[in-house]
Design a protein around this nucleic acid. Structure first.
Lengths: 178, 178
DNA sequence: CCTTGTTGTTATCGACTGATAACTAGAAGG
DNA sequence: CCTTCTAGTTATCAGTCGATAACAACAAGG
């Protein structure tokens, strides 16, 4: 078995995907760079060399996740510029549980100045994007964002997404979300 | 200055209050037991002896926070059994930012089995309590919980509560929450 | 073929951190 | 006063984890 050699950019991409999974599972402080390295199939020091520092890797991961959310929203907006359409798009992101949960971990880690600033900026950007794409009223956009946060929290608690823990209250919530 | 000697129960209470602040700031994995000890004015090994383990201390902290939320809801429900009344009660909890943010850190740390189970159970309990106290429809209760999660996330991002980071999108969200 | 640049590794450090053990000290009861 | 129980400490370990440094291996161009 010959190890495939990739360019630094290609390998960084693979590490980033591994980072989404790992950070999504255990958060910023709770994830070891070694775990990410194992998932990506490289050594731990190489992960550090590619991204400089664990914090920078987490920031890159956060940006990646936000990019994907915005991309999904934009695509949905092109198809049909309504909140329902964007909501469907968000729901289709849910199966990749780690993706959205990385967001939550970012919010939670806002006490770190660099993370806090990044997360505030990206969240604001998504909020604005939703309004711009749909032209919905501030009240409607707020309700949309609130529902999104509830869904994200439920994903973190593993009552939504793949292999959900069965919970009566969870099914009741999901049924009454419209 | 003579050190005041307290009973184990009294000291545990002080440590628990310190734990709310510390865990609220840095989360489960990101908080060191030594930091909690410093805040409580005792030595780090004593914190461990009082609670057995860092995880158990975190679980106790989560229970404490959920108890306080439920207590606030119950009190508000006695005064006036409406969602608006409970919403006001939640807003009055907001100034103690760490309190609600501990919740968020609990959700985020759900990958740990013990924490996940605890957090699911308590969240379900709060959801049920809100319905029981107000008699509101499932749709209304869901919207209430969603708004609560958005507020909690905003508290974590430090755009609500004391000394908020000023953000246009944050003020817009807060104004359109009814 | 050999030099050079880039991908990737192994070895290792140094700081941290939860937990344990052993000891100290204040209070209560006789 | 003395014993005993509990509150609390200091000292310290054992394992972790991010980061650095030095080296190895593969590819490409001359």
């Amino acid at each position: 078995m010959t190890r495939t050699r990739l360019t630094a950019a290609e390998r960084s991409e693979e590490v980033l995907q591994a980072a989404v999974v790992a950070f999504g599972a255990s958060g910023y402080a709770g994830t070891k760079t070694d775990e990410i390295a194992r998932l990506a199939g490289v050594s731990q020091p190489y992960v550090i060399r590619l991204f400089g520092t664990k914090q920078q890797l987490f920031l890159a991961t956060t940006h990646r996740v936000c990019d994907r959310v915005e991309e999904a929203f934009r695509r949905a907006g092109e198809r049909e510029p309504t909140l329902d359409s964007l909501g469907d798009a968000y729901n289709e992101l849910l199966p990749e549980r780690e993706l959205l949960v990385v967001l939550l971990h970012g919010f939670a880690a806002s006490a770190d100045p660099a993370i806090g600033e990044t997360v505030r900026s990206r969240f604001g950007g998504i909020h604005r994007l939703v309004g711009d794409l749909t032209g919905a009223s501030p009240e409607e956009v707020t309700k949309f964002m609130a529902t999104g946060m509830l869904l994200t929290v439920m994903a973190a608690m593993q009552v939504t997404g793949p292999n959900p823990v069965s919970c009566e209250w969870a099914t009741e919530l999901l049924n009454s979300m419209g």
